[in-house]
Design a binder for these strands. Structure first.
Length: 270
DNA sequence: CGAAAACCCTGAGTGC
DNA sequence: TGCACTCAGGGTTTTC
């Protein structure tokens, strides 16, 4: 389940393989993922040199010296892998570099996507225009969050999953941050006190930063023994721990909100 | 308009 | 062993 930290880890992991490298071949093994690959993807990328790897929300960006930017989303099950020279089941895209590196985009559920934009992707990629602030940026603070949540009656859990409110959180880190900040996921967003919001913002930043740090340390050189880039295991505070014990001593509960599991502690999250 | 539900997809897990 | 079924969920679209 790649959320912001997994994508950040993936981008950092891909960087040494791609930055400064010429793309000698770009191959697709099917016409689409969630949506069609750009028809001219291979033609525009082949022969280009990768300049930088970056991230916006849950999207990774591979920029080239032709001012073309390949934007990938890992969806639910996407990852990049380096092991094995040949394409296997669920490998959908292959990047080959001048150094002889082969990088496969592997995505069994195909919820991911690959797009290509010319010019600054932050202003040229439609999906980026609707995104809220990066949660780790200084601009994301209590005032910013309070303003975005003003008047919103939906549960705070749903609001934090809305990428227009804050960009990059998924189900896991929303559950974790709300537990850390002792806020009920069921509470209408606009009803949360300013003091609680002031606690929520650093909780979000801390949960994400810790996960990125764990990714970096768990995946030595960001490459797992299986050759996967960007995945790591972690012990969660509440996620996936229904019936377990919260830090406060309470019992962790699971409820379903908008068809999605929410894990929380009814005792300390109010 | 906001909010909830449907949809896409396949592997893992469960019960019989 | 195998089959039917449920669940996981990010983002987009549809419905209420």
């Amino acid at each position: 389940m790649p959320e912001l930290p997994e994508v950040e880890t993936t981008v950092r992991g891909l960087a040494p393989f791609l930055e400064g490298q010429r793309l000698t071949a770009v191959t697709t093994f099917r016409p689409d993922l969630r949506r069609p690959f750009p028809v001219d993807l291979a033609q525009r990328l082949t022969g280009a040199t990768v300049t930088t790897l970056s991230r916006r929300a849950k999207y990774g960006i591979v920029s080239t010296d032709r001012d073309d930017h390949m934007i990938f989303h890992l969806g639910m099950s996407g990852r990049w892998r380096t092991e094995g020279g040949e394409a296997g089941k669920h490998d959908h895209l292959l990047l080959e570099t001048g150094a002889g590196q082969r990088l496969f985009l592997h995505d069994p559920r195909r919820f991911g996507s690959v797009d290509l934009v010319s010019g600054d992707p932050l202003t040229r990629f439609p999906a980026f225009m609707a995104l809220g602030p990066e949660p780790l940026a200084d601009a994301f603070d209590a005032a910013c969050l309070a303003s975005a949540l003003a008047g919103r009656r939906a549960p705070i859990k749903a609001m934090l999953l809305d990428q227009a409110i804050v960009a990059g959180l998924g189900n896991i880190y929303v559950c974790e941050a709300l537990n850390m900040a002792k806020i009920s996921p069921l509470k209408p967003a606009a009803d949360i006190s300013r003091a609680k919001l002031a606690a929520l913002v650093p909780a979000i930043k801390q949960v994400l930063a810790a996960a990125i740090a764990a990714g970096g340390s768990t995946l030595r050189d960001f490459l797992s023994p299986e050759g996967d880039l960007g995945y790591f295991a972690k012990d969660w505070r509440v996620y996936g721990r229904e019936g377990g014990t919260c830090e406060c001593g309470g019992t962790i509960a699971r409820v379903v909100q908008s068809g999605r599991s929410t894990f929380h502690c009814p005792k300390c999250q109010r």
